[in-house]
Design a protein around this nucleic acid. Structure first.
Length: 862
DNA sequence: GCAAGGTC
């Protein structure tokens, strides 16, 4: 029997499609990567009985990047990234082993049916899948078609079965347009980002962002925030006047009338209107009207609307809201949360999900009433052909979910119930008055039936007292006419919800990527989230955008995306050549890049005003090995040391504190050592600022401290302080932390394992001898007289921390900062440890300590 | 260390 391989874009879709096509008869098992499942069943294909294997990828299989050597920032001119730098496709998520997984499943298959999402990205993934599986599938007989594409617009029985019966072919042009998009985004984004970052970080010490990034989506996103900021800044308040009149409706009630002219901006004219009306004793009714109006129930919920409400009403940022929604989805509480669709398919079972909610403590009554009296048809929304709107899939209580998960679930459920509820109906009454020559109106709303607002109370029509009944020609006594002086007020900072709307409108990002772009501009310190989730640009954000305004406004305009997308659509439609479009667009941006580089002084002028040059930032900390003057420690991200005399900058490890290390010097370059520490519960190690940036030995890399230094004789080096191989990771060595006393620690120089060894020793040294059993270096310890754990009050002991019975008792293994007790020393508690690969119990370390001192020595003299 | 797009 032949085998048909079928591949969907994500595990959940593979499951639902297989369920539909197999009519529930499939058997499932997990694939080798643990993330994807394979669903198998038998059926017919092209008129013959076959075996079906339905599985999925997890989004893109591959990602585009530059060849390794072009990722060295200090060796490559960013301008080269526009054409010379070659790119390669790498596995998007190496942990998932997707290519291997697909090949294992595809081996021996005869046909493939591609069930990827029906958009351009999906079409591109089709070819990523084909590249992986075609080499291992059975070869086709000549002329036989073996590759098929399913075209579906919703995940319903009819649609899926129809797609299966009308298979087509994958569209190469659509896939190519995505290839072009990837290459453009990569080359343009990286070139501008690297140039800006290097230029400004080399000049200023207080930018407070480790990266000055640029991208065709994130930059216009920032642009919207700064545009609003500029509007606020340039706003000048204007004074205006409003004529306010009150009439007595009866003895104890007055009506406030709205002036038909609303407001005037000229004081004298306002005064004139007041003079014309203030002596009037009565207001005459000119007309009355009563109109029944409806407030429409909401459209079914899609991702973007959910994110808007989450931000504006629940105070949850888009990134957080999305993560919460994903968790609700994987736990089965809601349907797939990434969808653009606001329209339920015709045969969608609306009553099922509704029935599940009929015993819910918060909305049982509303739901029961709907089920008894009949639900309303949801409004006609937009069908993007991806997934049904976001719908609750099972009932849940506040206690069960708790916190933000509950609040989001509650909103989704209330919204869903609202979509099948009736519109809110209310009566709008208006009375038009005349006071002398001027016209006024008074209007009020009375709710006739609350409809969906019962389940979405925040949407209710506010309760108002009804207007008095009256007729044309009636008069009411005037109680007061006065002039109010007011001022126009500036707009407020953009809310996240408004930003999402703007991004959606201009096609910046997608439902899945909008939260990422917003998160990016926050993390890069371009904007901060203020109360009410309003986005206020920082100085850095403002200067960047104003700089683009000065140099090339197109770099920050939202059209930067849509213009490119227009070109890409030509590729997708087969109306333009992929190579030509790519070449042309790259050429345009290459010119823009060169112009930007040549004009960077324009942006720099703005930077100067807000930021301080490197030489003027930071505090003197340690001495430079070249000029022996103090270098300044710049704490702002990225933290570094700057020698203003030599005009050199030395980067330091991120996240942690830096102190001078006892004025000790590196024997290689005479730089004063500094001590990096991740906190009291973490680890610390000394490092030489020069060696950290310029590795001294061949077997060392950039970013290594003394605890990884292979110097054979320096007292701070790995060679001198290394004790034994790490008990968890493959390549790390546990290194004695000479600053950790009196609570002595050894820390792995690769992973975050920390071994606490002696609490009451005043001196611990790494001895020259090694353990005969495990080859770890012996430790030479002087304990405090009063608290010595040694028998008969001895204070001095030399032994192996891993094998010596006295020392073993004193060792405790932890993880830096997190402090999970992974190990407690002492016999009798060893069972059950050592889960996972490559971990050895502390009692049995593997081969240890850098042994090959001769080769390190040789490297030293290179 | 960089983009944006999938998804886990």
């Amino acid at each position: 029997m032949k085998t048909v391989l079928m591949v969907a874009e994500k595990p959940s879709l593979a499951q639902s499609i297989a369920k539909i096509l197999s009519r529930g008869t499939m058997s499932s098992h997990k694939g080798l990567n643990g993330a994807c499942s394979v669903h198998e069943y038998t059926g017919t294909f092209a008129g013959q009985p076959v075996h079906f294997k339905m599985t999925s990828v997890c989004g893109h299989v591959m990602t585009l990047d530059f060849l390794g050597k072009y990722n060295k920032w200090d060796k490559v001119d960013p301008a080269e990234l526009f054409s010379q730098a070659p790119t390669e496709k790498k596995e998007a998520n190496p942990k998932l082993n997707m290519v291997k997984f697909l090949q294992v499943e595809a081996r021996g298959c005869d046909y493939i049916v591609l069930w990827l999402d029906c958009d351009k990205e999906g079409e591109n993934i089709c070819f990523e899948v084909l590249d992986a599986v075609l080499p291992v599938m059975n070869k086709a007989h000549s002329g036989e078609k073996t590759v098929f594409r399913a075209q579906f617009s919703s995940i319903t029985d009819t649609d899926i079965c129809h797609a299966m019966a009308h298979l087509g072919s994958p569209d190469h042009n659509e896939a190519l347009s995505v290839d072009a998009r990837q290459e453009l985004d990569l080359r343009i984004g990286c070139a501008f980002t690297r140039f800006q970052t290097k230029y400004f970080q080399g000049k200023y010490g207080d930018l407070d962002s480790s990266l000055i990034s640029f991208g065709p989506c994130q930059t216009p996103t920032l642009g919207f925030c700064v545009e609003r900021h500029d509007k606020i800044q340039s706003f000048t308040p204007e004074t205006y006047w409003v004529l306010q009149a009150k009439v007595n409706a009866d003895e104890n009630r007055t009506l406030l009338l709205d002036w038909d002219r609303v407001r005037v901006f000229d004081r004298e004219i306002a005064q004139m209107f007041l003079n014309m009306t203030k002596l009037e004793k009565e207001a005459q009714v000119e007309a009355t009207s009563k109109k029944e109006k409806a407030k429409q129930r909401p459209l079914a919920l899609n991702t973007v609307e959910m994110l808007r409400v989450a931000s504006s009403s629940l105070g949850m940022g888009p990134q957080h809201a999305m993560q919460t929604a994903e968790r609700l989805y994987t736990q089965g509480y809601i349907s797939y949360p990434r969808t653009e669709t606001t329209h339920y398919p015709e045969n969608f079972d609306l009553k099922g999900p509704l029935r599940q909610q009929s015993n819910h403590p918060y909305w049982a009554d509303t739901v029961k009433q709907l089920l008894v009296e009949g639900i309303n048809r949801p409004r006609k929304g937009h069908d993007a052909g991806d997934h049904p709107p976001i719908t609750p899939m099972k009932a849940a209580t506040e206690v069960e979910l708790g916190g933000d998960a509950w609040r989001l679930y509650e909103y989704i459920t209330r919204h869903f119930i609202a979509t099948v509820s009736y519109d809110c109906r209310y009566l709008q009454s208006t009375i038009a008055f005349r006071l002398g020559p001027e016209h006024f109106t008074c209007s009020g709303k009375t709710v006739l039936s609350p409809g969906f607002t019962a389940i979405m109370p925040w949407q209710s029509v506010p309760l108002e007292e009804s207007l008095p009944t009256c007729q044309c020609g009636d008069t009411f006594p005037v109680s007061e006419v006065k002039l109010l002086e007011k001022q126009t007020s500036p707009p407020d900072y953009l809310t996240e919800a408004e930003l999402i709307t703007l991004m959606e409108k201009h096609g910046i990002g997608t439902d899945a990527s909008i939260p990422v772009h917003i998160n990016n501009i926050c993390q890069r310190n371009y904007v901060t989230v203020e109360s009410g989730r309003r986005l206020k640009p920082t100085n850095l954000g403002i200067v960047l955008v104003h700089g683009y305004y000065k140099i090339d406004v197109e770099l920050v305009q939202p059209t930067i995306r849509s213009a490119v997308e227009k070109q890409l659509n030509l590729i997708a439609q087969g109306r333009a050549d992929y190579r030509q479009v790519l070449g042309h667009t790259l050429d345009v941006f290459k010119r823009k890049f060169h112009y930007f580089v040549d004009s960077i002084a324009g942006m720099d002028e703005l930077m100067e005003v807000s930021f301080s040059p490197l030489a003027a930032t930071g505090k003197p900390l340690s001495r430079c090995g070249k000029c022996h003057r103090f270098m300044k420690y710049i704490q702002a991200k990225p933290s570094r040391l700057h020698c203003s005399h030599c005009d050199e900058t030395y980067t330091l490890p991120p996240n942690g504190t830096i102190k001078l290390y006892k004025e000790l010097r590196c024997p290689l370059d005479d730089f004063e050592l500094v001590l990096w520490s991740s906190g009291s519960r973490g680890k610390s190690y000394p490092l030489c600022p020069y060696c950290y940036n310029h590795p001294p030995f061949r077997d060392m890399k950039k970013g290594m401290g003394c605890n990884e230094c292979t110097h054979p004789t320096c007292q701070h080096s790995l060679s001198m302080l290394g004790v034994g191989q790490c008990v968890e990771c493959e390549s790390g060595v546990l290194v004695l932390d000479p600053t950790s006393g009196p609570k002595w620690k050894m820390a792995c120089n690769r992973c975050n394992v920390v071994a606490h060894c002696f609490e009451n020793a005043h001196r611990v040294r790494v001895a020259a001898d090694t353990c005969g059993v495990c080859e770890a270096a012996l430790l030479d310890v002087d304990f405090n007289k009063a608290k010595s754990p040694l028998p008969s009050g001895e204070t001095q002991h030399t032994g192996c921390v891993f094998c010596d019975p006295v020392f073993q008792e004193l060792v405790e293994l932890k993880h830096a900062a997190s402090c999970h007790p992974m190990h407690r020393g002492g016999p009798g508690r060893r069972q059950g440890r050592g889960r996972g690969r490559g971990r050895r119990p502390l009692g049995k370390p593997g081969p240890r300590r850098p042994k090959d001192k001769m080769s390190a020595l040789a490297a030293y003299f290179v």
